[in-house]
Design a binder for these strands. Sequence first.
DNA 1: ATCCCGAGGG
DNA 2: CCCTCTGGAT
Length: 214
Amino acid sequence: MARQLPYQTVKEIFTRFEASEPEPKGELHHLNAFTLLVAVALSAQATDAGVNKATGPLFPVADTPQKMLDLGEEGLTGYIKSIGLYRNKARNVIRMSRILVEEHGGEVPSSRAALEALPGVGRKTANVVLNMWWGHPAQAVDTHILRVGNRTGIAPGKDPVAVERAIEDHVPAEFQRHAHHWLILHGRYICVARKPKCKACLISDLCAYEDKTT
DNA sequence: ATCCCGAGGG
DNA sequence: CCCTCTGGAT
């Protein structure tokens, strides 16, 4: 695990991210709060491209919890079979939809506790919804951010919560809102898991990673 | 710690 | 073939 980069270095990194991409956005397709919640839940250990392929046909049919219940677990499974872990995900989305209808008036709750009480929704998914839909400064830490945070030294930590804290503590306040997507996109296209593309990386000179041969 | 679990890339 | 992909529940 790389050591924590100095504050000024982290600041310079995000200054470059912002210059390169002023308004970074996620790439998971959704139509409203409910479909965002479902899309994020489906994205566990799956690529967003793969999730989008399945939700393209699905969401026009089931863009509310009630319509999802009408579709049913069998029907839903038919749409998402191309996504890994699809049985657990189908079961969770149906159970989640029932709770939304019965306990939240069909709306997506805005509190962490209520979100994490939903089946298939853990800390990471809750943080994404809190950030993207409700505008809270929540830092969702996924596989990309865990890797990029440690490799670069922007936010080192052995577990997601530690990295979450490191981001809150070491990323300048003005960059916190978009930090999630900047780090995700950097991890997805440049700081990839296998052979990070350091030659094409715009923060390579500031990064703590040792092997920059690629 | 283990299970879930298909698609895409190297 | 092996690894990875915006994790969560047990």
